[in-house]
């Protein structure tokens, strides 16, 4: 009986901890969003965060998108050629990249690069008292450190995904043309005939949400880290893992919300 009560007690403690964490995250997100709209604003910090999240993530996102488009064209060909449906490859590639793979893969890549960097930087600032020092210098840390990153993440990710979409489609096009022997003009016509504005838009909406989530998890985990180098390492891991899981879960939710059968 005592063993059963212990197990129930442990489960209860875990559930309470998880709920507490969710509550803490919600308060952090709310405070961060509020700080975006409350002066003073820090345009230099926003610019620096845009460079860090957007510009410096460009190579890794570009390469990921390019190779994904190339693989997608090859794999689609393998399946579709069995049903003599090769002409659908162009549409499959462009719709997969713009609606799904562009934002998700860019999100995962940016999470691993910029999200981890944010958590490590803020974590180090926390354990070396730099965040406390900001408070003593008439500066609100949420406004100075968190708000610019949340804003930059939300802005930079859709811009990255536009480039990822273009490169992903281009990768598929190159493989179809040079490797699979497709007529380039026909492939491009097939690609864009079936593409609609909402396909691109739904991907960009996802990208903005993912960008916010990446910045939020990076800042949240870094901001509350403790215990020196080990704590900063744990915060960095948590930031990447939690952002990646949230991206995949939110991807399904957003796909369902933005789902169009036409």
């Amino acid at each position: 009986m005592k063993a059963i009560l212990n197990v129930i007690g442990h489960i209860g403690a875990v559930v309470l901890d998880a709920l507490g964490l969710v509550g803490e995250l919600a308060i952090f997100a709310g405070t961060g969003i509020g700080a975006i709209f409350r002066p003073p604003f820090y345009p230099r910090r926003i610019g620096a965060a845009l460079m860090e999240i957007g510009f410096f993530s460009l190579p890794v996102v570009s390469l990921t998108a390019l190779f994904t488009g190339m693989v997608l064209a090859l794999q689609s060909y393998t399946g579709f050629s069995r049903f003599n449906a090769e002409s659908a490859i162009a549409s499959v590639v462009i719709l997969s990249v713009t609606r799904e793979l562009g934002p998700v893969l860019a999100g995962l890549m940016v999470s691993g690069r910029a999200g981890a960097a944010m958590a490590a930087e803020l974590g180090t600032m926390r354990v070396t008292d730099q965040i406390d020092a900001l408070s003593t210098l008439s500066t609100e840390p949420m406004q100075y450190l968190v708000a610019p990153r949340l804003l930059a993440g939300t802005i930079a990710m859709p811009l990255l995904v536009v480039i990822a979409d273009i490169l992903g489609v281009m990768g598929g096009f190159l493989v179809a043309w040079l490797k699979l022997g497709f007529n380039p003009n026909t492939y491009l016509i097939n690609s864009f005939t079936n593409l609609r504005a909402e396909d691109v838009l739904s991907g960009l909406i996802k990208a903005a949400v993912f960008g916010f989530v990446i910045a939020l998890m990076g800042c949240f985990n870094g901001y509350r880290s403790k215990g020196g180098a080990q704590g900063v390492g744990a915060a960095t891991t948590s930031a990447v893992v939690s952002a990646s899981i949230l991206i995949l879960a939110l991807d399904y939710i957003l796909t369902q919300l933005l789902f169009t059968a036409k």
């Binding site: 003073p40 930087e121 180090t124 600032m125 070396t128 008292d129 730099q130 406390d132 020092a133 900001l134 003593t136 210098l137 008439s138 500066t139």
Partner: peptide, 27 residues
Amino acid sequence: IGMLFQNGALFDSLPVWENVAFGLLAE
């Protein structure tokens, strides 16, 4: 209140002069 932290707590991302003038710029 002005505070001198145990390990200095200087902002790594800023040069020395910006660290020193940080409070003045913030205010």
